[in-house]
């Protein structure tokens, strides 16, 4: 049972990293949102498994929140948003996929080295979880750095946040309040960013952040 619990948790957390890497090379916005929804589903499964293994019923609630908000409400809202903005067919010219993927792999390796070395004394399950969580966080950050479109930056931010939730649930005994507040802060951030998107759009007829920079008259 111990072995199985570890393997399944490892499987889910590893899938989360894999989906994060998938996010990196999606150049259509609607596909990006779908992959993000898929990531949220994997996250919910992972958290639910943790709840089962740790015998912590409140984690089921976290999983339910992740599933309902991140896998359903936010993706649906984002789909509607890009449809209203008329950018659902847009192809985002991200930085070249090859180098981005290589950088992503490098980040995963880096986080493995850092975490496995720093937490030599900790429980094996928590170590693996933390390493994967850090990878997800770094990949989300990488996505925010490489994308120009505001919507994909939002998705990068939220996938970063998925990594945080993975870390929070993987560590035993994290207070429930922390998880709840993290989940709600993301929701609030999503609303705020959504409003901003429309404001940017109203003013510049585009959600490409390039427009903001051009407006400031900066040289990139």
């Amino acid at each position: 049972m111990e072995r199985l619990a570890f393997d399944v948790a490892h499987f889910f957390a590893g899938s989360l990293v894999l989906v994060s890497l998938m996010l990196l090379y999606q150049d259509r916005l609607s596909a990006l949102i779908n992959v993000f929804a898929f990531q949220a589903v994997v996250l919910a499964l992972s958290v639910a498994w943790q709840a089962y293994v740790q015998g912590a019923p409140h984690l089921y609630l976290t999983a339910a929140i992740a599933l309902s908000v991140k896998a359903i409400i936010i993706p649906v809202a984002l789909h509607r948003m890009i449809r209203r903005l008329g950018i659902h067919r847009e192809v985002e010219t991200a930085v070249n996929i090859g180098p981005t993927m290589l950088a992503g792999l490098g980040l995963v390796a880096l986080s493995m080295v850092v975490i496995l070395r720093a937490t030599a004394a900790a429980d094996m399950l928590a170590r693996e979880d933390l390493a994967f969580a850090l990878s997800v966080v770094l990949l989300g950050l990488l996505m925010m750095v490489t994308r120009r479109n505001a919507v994909s930056q939002v998705i990068g931010f939220m996938s970063l946040e998925n990594g945080l939730i993975l870390a929070a649930t993987g560590a035993k005994g994290m207070p429930f309040v922390v998880e709840i507040s993290v989940a709600f802060s993301v929701l609030v951030a999503f609303i705020v960013i959504g409003i901003f998107l429309f404001r940017i759009r109203e003013r510049f007829d585009s959600v490409n952040l390039q427009a903001l920079d051009d407006f400031r008259g900066e040289i990139r």
Binding site: V114, M144, L209, E218
Partner: peptide
């Protein structure tokens, strides 16, 4: 003081990765 948002993010990202690299190569 006058960078773009993405540049700031890249700066933060770069520093984070650098610090992690330092941590990884420390002990």
């Amino acid at each position: 003081q006058f960078l773009t948002i993405r540049r700031y993010l890249s700066l933060v990202f770069g520093v984070l990765v650098f610090l992690l690299l330092v941590l990884a190569s420390w002990g």
